[in-house]
Amino acid sequence: MQDASKIIKEWVDEFSSEMFSWAFYKTSHKETAEDLVQETFIIAFQSFDTFQNKSKPKTWLFSILKNKIIDYHRKNYKSSIISTDKISEQQSTFLLSYMFTEDGEWRKERQVSSLDEDSELLDDPAFNRVLTGCIEKLPLAWNSAIQLKYLEEKEATVICQELQVSTSNYWQIIHRAKLQLRECIEQHWFKKL
């Protein structure tokens, strides 16, 4: 075990900042990101026997961290659904009346967005910062729903079954989160070009 602790400590020096950055962008929360990195190294240490040199240390550590991040968003999502958090509700009401008329038609000013299939957008660091900012501005439960949707690569029914929450609620949240993100990108990127 002497060996394991020595190796893990080397990995801490080598990878912890990179892991912290990643966890921070995925959770938008410094202390959470620090805790997740710490837990990752403890798990790595405890299950060091299962690490075989088949994969690179970095790949192995990031896969543990990714699971930790998914767990974090699951807890977040579930607890905010159960407690029907007020911020999400207020934000929903505001957002929907901002996007749609009372009859449920698109408001004129919200019909046009410049968003297009453009795979090179993410190569632009300035656009990346805008998108990070837009994701951070989502209410907690919406952010967690979005993170789970893309991190888990599972069907919505499976995600909801595992969390024991309703799928209709999940789709409402995804719908609102994407409406808000589209609008945020429009306001903070395309209108400023």
Binding site: S17, E18, F20, S21, W22, F24, Y25, K26, F62, L115, D116, E117, D118, S119, L121, L122, P125, N128, L131, T132, I135, I146, Q147, Y150, L151, K178, L181, R182, I185
Partner: peptide, 20 residues
């Protein structure tokens, strides 16, 4: 298009040099 952006953004491990 937003799906593509978000999927790439969220699953990407490299943060484009902006390491904390």
């Amino acid at each position: 298009a937003l799906d593509v952006l978000l999927r790439n953004k969220i699953t990407n491990e490299q943060m484009g040099g902006s390491n904390l």
